[in-house]
């Protein structure tokens, strides 16, 4: 059981082509890091997989445990087990964190079944506590007025509550201070399991020091150009992405 992406070409709707034949397989139980210079298509890849309406698939396939991802709507992909922690989490004024999470969890229940309010709040509060979040955030509107770090923590809170089987973390480390980075990483590490896998998009080694990846990919000009182990992270940290240009 895996997330399998084959020969994926995609572009901004009515705009530039960004992905130029991405092929990738992330088996369950593994953590894969995706690195690459700015503008190489990392965030586009995450958004295309989740079904963002600004992008369109030109060709290629993506399968989630054998299911055709691109034939599903955005919400169906989420309920099928895919999760995206956003690079820039969106503010949703007037919708409280608690109501938002309740709606997301309710949507996963069979028709006619109601979410248990007591256990919902209990779980939400204890998860917030693990992430060092004030429980007052349950009543606050989703991400509204949150600092950059609070928004990222809120996304990780959602991931821990929804318990996806495939989680994509798009630059979750940006905007986090050292302590917050450790807390968030601890949360992710606690979720590592044989039935779950992660795609971690990042520019920096420090996150991957906390969440040690099994496989590291380099995405460049919309294509996976190199795949290796953790040693690739150290190489990039020391020498940057210059090797990509010499290989061109």
């Amino acid at each position: 059981m895996s997330l399998i992406i084959k020969d994926l070409y995609a572009r901004v709707k009515d705009g530039a082509q960004i992905l130029n034949g991405v092929s990738l397989e992330i088996p369950k139980g593994q953590v894969h890091a995706v690195m690459g210079p700015n503008g190489s298509g990392k965030s586009t890849l995450s958004k295309v997989l989740c079904g963002h309406p600004d992008y369109e698939v030109i060709s290629g396939t993506a399968e989630l445990d054998g299911q055709d991802l691109f034939s599903m709507s955005v919400d169906e992909r989420s309920r099928a087990g895919l999760f995206l922690a956003f690079q820039y989490p969106v503010e949703v004024p007037g919708v409280s964190n608690a109501n938002f999470m309740r709606a997301a969890l309710q949507a996963r229940l069979p028709k006619g079944e109601e979410l248990d309010a007591v256990s919902f709040y209990k779980t939400m509060r204890s998860t917030m506590s693990k992430l060092g979040m004030d429980t007052k955030f349950t009543a606050r509107a989703v991400n509204e007025g949150f600092s950059g770090g609070e928004k990222k923590r809120n996304d990780v809170l959602q991931m821990m509550m929804l318990e996806p089987t495939y989680a994509i973390l798009d630059e979750t480390d940006s905007g986090l201070d050292v302590d917050a980075l450790r807390i968030v990483s601890d949360g992710v590490n606690a979720m590592r399991a044989p039935f779950r896998s992660f795609m971690i998009i990042t520019h920096y080694k420090r996150l991957l020091d906390y969440i040690r990846p099994d496989v590291v990919h380099v995405l460049y000009k919309g294509k996976i150009v190199r795949t290796a182990g953790y040693e690739l992270v150290e190489q990039i940290e020391q020498n940057g992405f210059d090797f990509l240009k010499t290989e061109e």
Binding site: P53, D75, L84, V92, P93, V95, A103
Partner: peptide, 29 residues
Amino acid sequence: DDEQLFYLCARGIPKHEAQLLVADGFLAD
């Protein structure tokens, strides 16, 4: 806002329900 709608749908909330949530939130102000 399409981004707000996408954010809610990306958490598994069906589109129609997500629209209601965003609209209610707008009026709740």
